[in-house]
Nucleic acid binder design. Structure first.
Lengths: 188, 188
DNA sequence: AGCGTTGGTCAACGCTTGTTGGCAAGCGTA
DNA sequence: TACGCTTGCCAACAAGCGTTGACCAACGCT
């Protein structure tokens, strides 16, 4: 029962998960059909059901999001904004699961809850390190999330041309001070 | 043919459009079914087809988005950020079509194009009034869009609790200076 | 009265969806 | 060889989808 032993089906499982990640990222929850995912993985749709129960289970298994948040207490206090924007930019561009969870979070109630969980468990704790006032850390983290998710939305999902055209240094120069202010400036 | 005369079916038409707006806003494009919209409007699904051709036509007719952008050249130059954030906040809260177009813009390719069109035709021209450098106006408008759509996304769609909890004055105080900087500060 | 136009209902079409159960082939062990 | 478990494919199900066309009732006109 432990499941530590390698099963013969592990190749199929991971093929399904990879295909699911890609489909969810590009199509969103509703249009990412089990049949299409199975076709991408060169396997029968019924196998997807047997391995993951149902479509919700597949989504839960495929999209497990780790932002790999850095330890901001190691960064000079005047550069946390710059560091945070840079980290998000890197993670977004090398990890399509973020687009998946954002797309699904907008269409699906369960997806929205997952986004809330990521915010609560991964973003807020990091903000707590740099802004110790427990009264304000939630608000400040929320403001950062609004700015960073807005960037992701306009750049990777909606693809507003001017935002797509921005280079990494320009984004850092524009958004770094904003996030810095949201995290460390005195409350207005 | 002109269509100026009031038709007997106008009540049904507008009932369908109202129901469609609400469904698209809460469910997104795929899950907002014609059958559900027709049920809400107390009418037969086939009438929706007759009036609007197909689902795309219904969406186009239901979600016509006018941001009613203010003339920022009338506002003191140091307060355009504050004014813009306040305007967006007002429009978002009294108009569910914005949530609809955002939700659909994330899932549907046609919806994304519509968002790009709104940005191009309604947001950029206003930014042009306050930031006359034609080289930068696109970029600056894009940055504002990223911040404002990020707010809308986290507040009205994903509903991150700390962002939902923010009051209007706090949002103005936090985001006003950001948008102000994106519009008027010297390029970093 | 008779007419065409309009507003509306009903039943069905073809298709896709998530999901299920049965059955065949491969494997390790006894 | 025979057994039991795993892996996989196939065919089918019920439900829902967008969409279509036939049919009916009410209206406005001449």
């Amino acid at each position: 029962m432990g499941g530590s032993a390698a099963r013969r089906s592990d190749a199929s499982r991971s093929a399904i998960l990879a295909a699911a990640r890609e489909r969810f990222a590009t199509d969103g929850y509703e249009r990412a059909t089990i049949r299409a995912i199975a076709r991408d993985a060169h396997i029968d749709p019924s196998m997807v059901m047997r391995y993951f129960g149902n479509k919700d289970g597949l989504f839960a298994a495929a999209v497990t999001l780790d932002l790999r948040m850095p330890d901001l207490s190691q960064v000079p206090r005047t550069e946390v904004g710059h560091a945070l924007v840079g980290h998000f930019l890197t993670v977004w561009e090398e990890n399509e699961e973020l687009t998946a969870v954002l797309r699904v979070g907008v269409t699906n109630a369960a997806g929205a809850e997952r986004l809330q969980g990521i915010f609560r468990d991964q973003v807020v704790p990091v903000a707590q390190r740099v802004c110790p006032d427990p009264e304000q850390v939630q608000t400040r983290a929320g403001l950062c999330a609004a700015q960073l998710m807005g960037l992701a939305l306009t750049r990777y999902v909606v693809r507003l041309p001017p935002v797509v055209a921005l280079g990494r240094p320009e984004i850092l120069a524009w958004l770094g001070p904003t996030v810095q202010r949201y995290l460390t400036a005195p409350s207005p």
